[in-house]
């Protein structure tokens, strides 16, 4: 079963109007490919939530957690997703006023 568990936090909940979902992934798919697939599902440019127009990772804005580990957003195109992975899309940690 080539599925991953997707958990959604903050504005990503609003985009998909749900807390979590399961999605099928192609073997060896990258996180970036998954974001692009999700963009089609939600009819929104999800990539732009993580990667700026200048190609720079938007770490002040968003984060991706895979199996409890934070993914360096500059590596989303290299990070391979495996069936059974738990992926969280979340706003970045905020604090320290």
């Amino acid at each position: 079963m080539n599925e991953v568990e997707l958990e959604l936090v903050g504005r990503f909940r609003e985009i998909f109007n749900r807390r979590s979902m399961r999605i099928s992934v192609k073997p060896g798919a990258s996180l970036l490919e998954i974001l692009e697939e999700l963009s089609r599902v939600a009819n929104t440019d999800l990539r732009s939530e993580f990667i700026g127009a200048d190609g720079k990772p938007m770490e002040e804005s968003s984060l991706i957690i895979v199996n409890g580990r934070v993914v360096d957003l500059s590596r989303v195109s290299e990070h391979r997703v495996n069936p059974g992975d738990r992926i969280v899309l979340a706003p970045s940690v905020a604090g320290g006023g």
Partner: peptide, 16 residues
């Protein structure tokens, strides 16, 4: 994140 949820947005992120 500050404008919409304020810092309480951290609860679920930290939990994950």
């Amino acid at each position: 994140k500050y404008r919409v949820y304020g810092t309480p947005a951290n609860i679920l992120v930290h939990n994950k």
